[in-house]
Design a protein around this nucleic acid. Structure first.
Length: 464
DNA sequence: AAAAAAG
């Protein structure tokens, strides 16, 4: 089955062909004809299923005739994060290249100037995050009564982020005669309620269960101690055929520190998290897409929806707090029919989170072995069993390690240029949380210390 | 235990 059977225009089909796609995905097959007919739809689909094109393509054809009037966009797409909004915009540019549609991206973190100008001229397609959209509305820069097509993308994520009231407010500002499309990985009750209230006789399209993980992804867990995580990650990055990897951390601070640590070790690494300037977030993504960096250290800002081709590996430096985030994180690899590898570093403190994940995905994740605790590091665990295991399991651990790492990788820590003259590496414990905002100087000091060995007596006493 | 989004 090809795109030609879906009722799209020749100009659009040409653009699709140029982009290299020949066959519509299941959600595209089901959604595109319905959207072209003017129906409301609810698309229950994971990211990576071709969801974005399933609304972008028919919208381009629907909007092909007519022009947006000043401050009155003809269509509106709401997305939960700025990067997702930008990604939708990229799709409109890619597939709309043979059309003459005007578009504006209304997201936070960028100046109002260009956005104001675009709105003033009138746009056919307005893509926005909720906060900035309402902000612009309140400033009188925008009228939503002329919107003919509304798309609510990643509604489950909007729910998680507390955006549903904003979304409801936005919906209530729209005119009554419009077509509405809602996409969500789950149909949690608040999303169902939203759909009941703002959609008209929607057709439900379901593509994959939300909790199901992609069969193309080989998942495994690597048991390790909290202080061995960085070393374990470095060895994974060297041992695996890593062409392009995303490393997820739970905290923004750790994203920063880990990215800088990897860079010092010679990895082509970059970082992305919500405390960065918007332009830096986007330029890092561009660098990653263009392979100027091969490792992207990220917070959950990058967990969902980001579609980056050829991500060979996802590493969870931290086990995510929400099991659903695990599904989304590892879904950054194994996309478009390719295989992917997802390795999660697990400490004894993460047992419950792992149990949650395995319950959600309905499968046990393979344990790929144990990174032995370092000499002098075992005492850091309050759990007596962990220390005993560190000794008793040393031989067994070596065997397991052989599968995971190339021969000789064990000695690498001491062979590296940095720290080559140092004592056997005892990776430093997580830095103590800072109560007050830190000065630039403190940050600098902290970053510099990340890789340094911590005297054993200190690490022991620091943990009690 | 955190992150995300409006400044």
């Amino acid at each position: 089955m090809s795109f030609h059977a879906l009722g799209l225009s020749d100009e659009l089909l040409a653009a699709v062909e140029d982009s290299g796609y020949t066959e519509p995905t299941p959600i595209q097959r089901q959604a595109i004809p319905l959207v072209l007919m003017g129906r409301d739809i609810i698309g229950v689909a994971q990211t990576g299923t071709g969801k974005t094109a399933s609304f972008v393509l028919p919208m381009i054809d629907i909007l092909a005739h007519g022009r947006g009037r000043a401050r009155m966009p003809r269509s509106l797409i709401i997305a939960p994060t700025r990067e997702l909004a930008d990604q939708v915009a990229q799709n409109f540019l890619k597939y709309g290249k043979n059309h003459n549609l005007s578009m504006a991206l209304l997201i936070g973190g960028v100046s109002f100037g260009d956005q104001d100008k675009a709105l003033e001229k009138g746009v056919d397609v307005l893509i926005a995050t909720p906060g900035r959209l309402l902000d612009q509305f309140e400033r009188g820069k925008i009228l939503l009564s002329g919107v003919d097509i509304l798309v609510i993308d990643e509604a489950d994520r909007m729910l998680d982020m507390g955006f549903i009231p904003d979304v409801e407010r936005i919906c209530s500002l729209l005119g009554p005669n419009r077509q509405s499309l809602l996409f969500s990985a789950t149909m949690a009750p608040p999303i169902k309620k939203l759909a009941d209230r703002f959609l008209k006789e929607p057709r439900m399209i379901e593509v994959a269960r939300q909790s199901s993980t992609n069969a193309n992804i080989a998942q495994s867990l690597l048991m390790t101690g909290p202080r061995e995580k960085k070393q374990a990650l470095r060895e994974l990055l060297r041992a695996e055929e890593v062409t392009s990897a995303i490393v997820f951390c739970n905290r923004k601070r750790d994203v920063k520190e880990l990215a800088e640590s990897l860079k010092r070790d010679g990895f082509r690494a970059g970082q992305i998290h919500g405390d960065m300037e918007q332009r830096d977030r986007l330029s890092t993504l561009e660098d990653f897409k263009a392979d100027r960096i091969s490792i992207l250290v990220a917070s959950d800002v990058a967990a969902r929806g980001l579609d980056i081709k050829g991500v060979s590996h996802v590493f969870n430096f931290d086990v995510p707090f929400n099991a659903e985030d695990y599904v989304h994180r590892i879904g950054r690899t194994g996309r478009a029919g390719k295989t992917g590898i997802a390795v999660t570093l697990v400490t004894s403190a993460d047992a419950e989170l792992v149990a949650d994940i395995e319950k959600l995905i309905g499968a046990r994740v393979e344990r790929r072995g144990t990174v032995p605790q370092q000499d002098g590091g075992g005492a850091k665990s309050a759990d007596k069993g962990a220390e005993r295991d560190a000794d008793a399991g040393r031989d067994a651990g070596r065997d397991a390690d052989k599968d995971a790492r190339p021969a000789g990788s064990r000695a690498r820590g001491g062979k590296r240029a940095r720290g080559g003259d140092r004592k056997p590496e005892a990776p430093r414990a997580d830095p103590a949380p800072k109560a007050a905002p830190r000065s630039a100087r403190e940050e600098e000091f902290d970053d510099g210390g990340w890789n340094g060995p911590l005297p054993d007596f200190l690490s022991v006493s620091a943990r009690g």
